[in-house]
Amino acid sequence: MSVALTLLMLAAGAYLVAVLEGWISTGRLSAAGPITGGLALLGRESLVPRKPDRIFFEVAPPLLLVSAVLAFAVLPISPNLIVADLATGALFVNAALAYVMVALVMAGWGPDGVYAMVGGWRFLGQLIAYSMLIVMPITAVAMRAESLVTTDVVVSQAALPNALYQPVGFLVFVAAAMAVCFLPPLDLPNAPGELAGGVEAEYTGWRLAVFRLARLLLVVTLAAAITVFYLGGWSGPLLPPWAWSAAKALLVAAAMLMVGRYVPRLGEADFLQWCWKLGIPLALFNIFYVGVLLLVLP
């Protein structure tokens, strides 16, 4: 029962983020936007490129979808609303998100097109940049919670959310999260202006709908992860816990979507430099800093 409810909340979250995304990109708030858009996409033909690697072409969008849903499955919306409360929840999020890379490599290779392939390669560059940065801050979070269980992580933030306790880790994780769900300014794989759509260029009709839905769920999942790990999850006065989780996650998602409009796309080489020369030392410092705080403070 709670599983179904959690998944329902995921769906609702995805819908709201889709409305937000539409609002941010067109300036018009349209509550039925996702439904219209989704139906319109489903009504179009789904073309298959001429010489695809059929298996990869077909598997990539569902794999992206599964990866996003699995990552969400270990995140709690409230103390009772969690799909799977694994003992290694915080690590499992990363395991599931690793398949985003696999899916995009398949989507890049499958259609047998230059734009898609270049998009896939660029995502590799992005992966090498963000992969350390998406894991290391979680180490510090787990240190404070003394557990990898996601509910414990939320509980450990009762006094102070991690965003304030370990701000450096927070910023690093948010940047890495935007890279994982390839939101602008880190949208190298699909780069609408440069690569005419990149990895999603060759998908049309219902396959594109699945791809876009997967991408949306990925954004929601990462917003939920940021909420659970850094913003104290469901804690807050007055409103019921699930409302707090939802509100925080939506705010985070909105912020992630809006940032991209104001900044040009980050070049691959630049992003790699920033992540390895600045990001990793910061993440290491964060771990050290949290360790000192935990050992020194009562």
């Binding site: 602008p184 609408p192 202006g193 900044v263 040009p264 796309r265």
Partner: peptide, 10 residues
């Protein structure tokens, strides 16, 4: 240029 650079606001 803004569209090329992915800078939607520009």
């Amino acid at each position: 240029l803004g569209r090329l650079l992915g800078h939607a606001r520009l």
